[in-house]
Write a protein that binds this DNA or RNA. Structure first.
Lengths: 346, 346
DNA sequence: TGTTAGCACTCGCCGGCAAGGAGTGCTAAT
DNA sequence: ATTAGCACTCCTTGCCGGCGAGTGCTAACA
């Protein structure tokens, strides 16, 4: 796979990719010699282009059109040719300032991150909130609703509030609930949901809890409250930015993109992959098996709170994205969000 | 405005509207005599159509195309010609069953309503949750976060959970907080946020509270927690259904629709109007000043919880909507949701 | 007087065709 | 190894003419 290209081929490939990113149209040999002051004639460029096509970096939509980078071409460009400059302190500051996080809940933070990400990159913003299981317990509260139903409010270390209604077979008295609440709020803080679940499972098995009334009831309730998985929340902002891209200008393409963005399953799968890795990851459309995002690229980065609570944020757009612009933005935003989540957690 | 049409004209207008709803294409005189077994010749129909056009019920896109109903035409159709049949008990039951509300939060209920509404009508579903100010207090809870910040969790009568972080200048002790919480949870339940705000304002003015330490602190906190307005939440489902409609098949139209649906302000304004009225309301595109939803119709109905907490739900689609199908669905769904919210509230 | 048949006319739609242009690949000259 | 030149390909654009759906008008009819 690691083909070697001489300097000139690299230059030309880079020029083609950049022109294509700028114009979204096949680029011809002539255009290259003009726009990038190269000391070469169009004919020479053509020869090189033919080679690059042979090697799979380029392809031509039809005989007499210019060349378009293949996803392999984009890969090579990103891995080898692209120089990602860091944001200047000024830009960083400006970016940091465009977020207004005060007094916001986790959910709002995620929403806001997506909004800003989309606004600044002018592509579509994607944020996957940290998984419930990986969040750290801070506080639990039970509120009695009608008909013996109980509202459980769970607050994580990061200020994330989850709530859920459980149908209780037993009618709980206020005192009981208060004692249970106190008990849980004294024993559980600092543990992640995952750990709590594990402990619950253990203790239920050992049956040792049976001797202690309070503890048993507490376990029963917390099991009902915390046991089942909450589906991933994905926040999408600036969907309509997708429509601005010339590659999705036909009605059919638009529909396809929208269906993809509407069903979050694909996105979750994709973002999950990105989460495993460290730092900025780039997925290029056709390379991922899901042809659902054919023609799209995803630039994403995980962010983390305390105790390994991990989410992913990123930007999705056409393969022909302005990588050099977006990559540092995604990178820095992930750092920013991590920092904020950790600060909240102290 | 209330023009009179003789029976034949009415029949023909109805036939045209219905054919147009079914086909999305201009309908000609010939088509009408064929599809709707009328004892008239196309020529006669043409004469009538010319009259209807004169009166503004119809228009023709160009000389040699069929006729298309104007929004005035649609209005007349909806007000006079359309017979909205009620749903059969079977249909009602089936519709009620497609909702799965157990153990869901207000927010999830709204989401679910939108989802089902969109699924059944095959248009785009719209739900505006009841305003925060009109919700009824049930329970409040304070959780200490880091740096003296306080997480306020507020539970409404309907099980709606709101939360908010407030920056406290003072460091509150756990005991203080507990006492305040107890105090508030004893005095406030049953009142709407609006009422609480009014009372707060009154008492703060009278300064009488100053004598009671606890009460003063409680008032300070509850003011911070409940005073500012929370923006309306609008839930949209099935946006991509819009794209299926032939009238929005061009890229430009698609973009326009999407921008409209993405910026919720217009929708809030529109739904607010619908909320004021009782029962099912229909807004037809060009008639409303907002040309943002040009070419669209909104069928909506308010629903209500206890104590006048009111929201709006509806379906948005092309003007050429299947009104006879959607109206009873929207109507019944609003009743259903009202019933559920009231049941929760008992 | 209301209804109908007949007919000329209008337009949008579609397929074919030719001109124009961008870009390639090959070859021969430098 | 590079480049100029040239024939060739194939997309795009604009134009033309035929087709068909539908209209409006007029004259005949009950």
């Amino acid at each position: 796979m690691a083909e070697e290209l001489n300097q000139r081929s690299q230059d030309i490939l880079e020029a083609i990719v950049e022109d294509y990113i700028a114009s979204a149209e096949p680029v011809g040999s002539r255009a290259i010699t003009r726009r990038h002051a190269m000391d070469l004639s169009p004919a020479t460029v053509r020869n090189v282009m033919a080679d690059l096509e042979e090697m799979g970096f380029l392809c031509s939509p039809h005989t007499s059109a210019g060349r378009v980078p293949t996803s392999k071409g984009f890969h090579y460009y990103i891995d080898t040719l692209l120089e990602v400059r860091d944001l200047s302190p000024l830009e960083k500051e400006r970016l940091a300032k465009s977020y207004q996080f005060q007094g916001l809940q986790m959910e709002d933070v995620m929403q806001e991150v997506g909004r800003v990400l989309s606004g600044i990159s002018s592509y579509t913003g994607l944020v996957m909130a940290p998984k419930f299981a990986s969040t750290v317990f801070r506080h639990i509260e039970f509120v009695k609703l009608s008909h013996g139903r109980l509202l459980v409010i769970f607050v994580s270390e990061t200020g994330l509030v989850q709530n859920k209604v459980i149908e209780a077979e037993v009618e709980w008295s206020a005192q009981e609930l208060e004692r249970i609440t106190n008990y849980l709020n004294h024993t559980l803080p600092g543990m992640s949901i995952q750990e709590i679940r594990r402990r619950l499972a253990d203790e239920l098995q050992r049956e040792k809890a049976r001797f202690d009334q309070l503890q048993e009831k507490a376990m029963y309730l917390s099991k009902a409250a915390l046991m089942d998985e909450i589906e991933e929340k994905v926040f999408i902002s600036g969907t309509s930015r997708m429509l601005e891209q010339p590659e999705f200008s036909t009605p059919e393409k638009m529909k396809k993109i929208f269906h993809t963005l509407e069903s979050k399953e694909h996105l979750v799968k994709l973002l999950d992959q990105a989460q495993a890795a460290e730092g900025v990851q780039i997925f290029i459309g056709s390379q991922t098996e899901h042809d659902a995002i054919e023609g799209c690229s995803l630039i994403s980065s995980p962010f983390s709170g305390k105790k390994g609570a991990v989410g992913t944020l990123g930007v999705i757009g056409p393969v022909r994205m302005d990588y050099s612009h977006v990559i540092p933005i995604v990178d820095f935003t992930a750092q920013l969000v991590s920092r904020i989540l950790k600060r909240e957690a102290e």
